[in-house]
Design a protein around this nucleic acid. Structure first.
Ligand SMILES: [Mn+2]
Ligand SMILES: [Mn+2]
Ligand SMILES: [Zn+2]
Ligand SMILES: [Zn+2]
Lengths: 123, 123
DNA sequence: AATTTTAATGCAATAGTGTTGCATTTACAA
DNA sequence: TTGTAAATGCAACACTATTGCATTAAAATT
């Protein structure tokens, strides 16, 4: 992956953010005209590919992005995400990993766990 | 809720289906021209409202619908859903309820748990 | 430093999901 | 049978995301 302003800036935004960021969030956080909206989509795809960030599909169906800690070739984010109804923040609860037992015959690739409600700040 | 053809047929489709159904699924399963696409959306909203069906937001962000067993005023579907990468089916695993412990201060309204991978049929 | 390669970008067009406004129809209660 | 509100159809719109293609530019090669 080549080093470009878009790459650097988008990754920086996501890394420094307390919450996950959607494409729309990123677009409005980036300096006006730094790059095209399509470029943002492509950069995000690449960063996921590289194992630097991971996707979270929110309750509203919109994809949000968060930085990974130790992901390289494979993503392992089996943690819960929380979507606050009031402040709308989507956050990784990195150390909340649900336990469950699937019936025989299933093989797991990915997980997408989202809980909505009120976060500590809004509660 | 008034008894209409759209209501009856859409609820029947969802109830009789082994898997969850998306708006697109329902549209193509219903007899051509039975009702408008917007009506399908509105019927689905009403059925959710009435506690007859529940929503599942799939990994691709698309909403799927499944029948409820004992939901009346409140939905309580804290079970896992499985999305097969091969046959694309999204199914309720009604008796797989994950356990986890949220930090202090969070209050839970809804959950959306989706696991993707290969289902027993495709594995 | 100049050249080459090809990854990355911009822009326009397109697809898919879902919502809203408003006039009309219809289920059902009175 | 009549009146009323719920439900519908249709058109327009909003939003997220993708694709094709010509152009630009990062970085490897000479
Ligand atoms: Mn996460
Ligand atoms: Mn379910
Ligand atoms: Zn909040
Ligand atoms: Zn399958």
């Amino acid at each position: 992956m080549r080093k470009t302003v878009a790459n650097t800036e988008i990754l920086r935004l996501i890394t420094e953010s307390e919450t996950t960021l959607s494409h729309a969030d990123i677009k409005s956080l980036l300096p006006e005209g730094l790059c095209d909206r399509v470029t943002i989509y492509r950069v995000l795809d690449r960063l996921v590919e590289e194992g630097l960030i991971h996707k979270v599909v929110n309750i509203d169906g919109v994809v949000n992005y968060a930085s990974c800690d130790g992901c390289t070739t494979k993503h392992h984010h089996n943690h819960v995400h929380f979507n606050c109804e009031k402040c709308n923040a989507v956050t990784c609860l990195d150390n909340v990993e649900p336990t469950f037992k699937l019936p025989e015959g299933y093989s797991v690739k990915e997980m997408n766990f989202v809980i909505s409600g009120l976060c500590p700040n809004c509660n």
